[in-house]
Design a binder for these strands. Structure first.
Lengths: 137, 137
DNA sequence: TGTATTTATTTACCTAGGTAAATAATTTGG
DNA sequence: CCAAATTATTTACCTAGGTAAATAAATACA
């Protein structure tokens, strides 16, 4: 087997899944990338933007942009932190109220995507993914 | 284990890998998405844009855009097909000449990413990925 | 034959992710 | 104490991917 197939397959599956998730999330007027922020805030509470992008492993400008859109849509609010440079991000009441329904949508979609794998296979896949790319530099 | 972790891990790894590939491909003035087109054309020869996007499983506008950039950079040429609606895409001589060196870069990067997995684990991972999402609707 | 439908590609507009550089505020050190 | 370095965020500019709608050409068919 050519190694290239592995990465090609990885790419294809992730794109396919994201498309599916974005599609299902449409009824909530949300994107998957925004969901990851929503979910993170729901578990961590009010945190700074830097904490957010470091946790989600994306770059700072990505978070700036997405938070701006989410603020316009009323999902989050940004309040000044103690340090005048930083901004604290928090979920709005509305976001908190809508969250359970959205989580259901996510769970359903992911469940559907994964039914072809046994519980054991899911574990194995997760395990292999975690190992991937861990011996660089 | 929460199922969400699986998809989160999938996303993270793919983003990380793509970033790595884009970074390494920079010396060739190429992006990974463009590489997939280059590689496809090198194996399939001159094909229409529709054949391309169907094969790569992206939408038509994505291919239109990326081909435009690649044409400007001299990687490909678009010639009229028999049917006046369609356009045939082919690699340029320069692209063909550069391809082996680029393939080396890809192989090296992917190899590096995968060294933490045994040959068997790579097979297993590929197998599990292929099964993912195959039982929908 | 001539209209209606389908097909191939493009255009316009959206989100996500990246890098480099700008800004503003805070820390560090001489 | 003040200049230099660091830190948090943003802005400008790039690629990739998506959908909806516009074109233009080919096909179907009544």
């Amino acid at each position: 087997m050519d190694r290239s197939y592995l990465f090609h397959a990885l790419n294809q599956k992730v794109r396919q899944l994201k498309k599916e998730l974005d599609d299902k999330l449409q009824v909530h007027d949300l994107y998957y990338a925004q969901w990851t922020i929503l979910y993170t805030l729901s578990r961590k509470g009010s945190i700074t933007q830097t904490e957010l992008w470091k946790y989600l492993q994306v770059e700072a400008p990505t978070i700036t942009r997405t938070l701006t859109r989410m603020e316009e849509k009323g999902w989050i609010v940004r309040t000044p932190g103690r340090d005048k440079r930083e901004r604290l991000v928090a979920l709005t009441e509305e976001a908190l109220a809508k969250l359970p329904r959205i989580k259901e949508t996510i769970d359903d979609t992911e469940q559907q995507f994964v039914t072809s794998l046994s519980e054991e296979e899911q574990q194995k896949l997760y395990h292999l993914l975690e190992k991937l790319g861990t011996s660089k530099e």
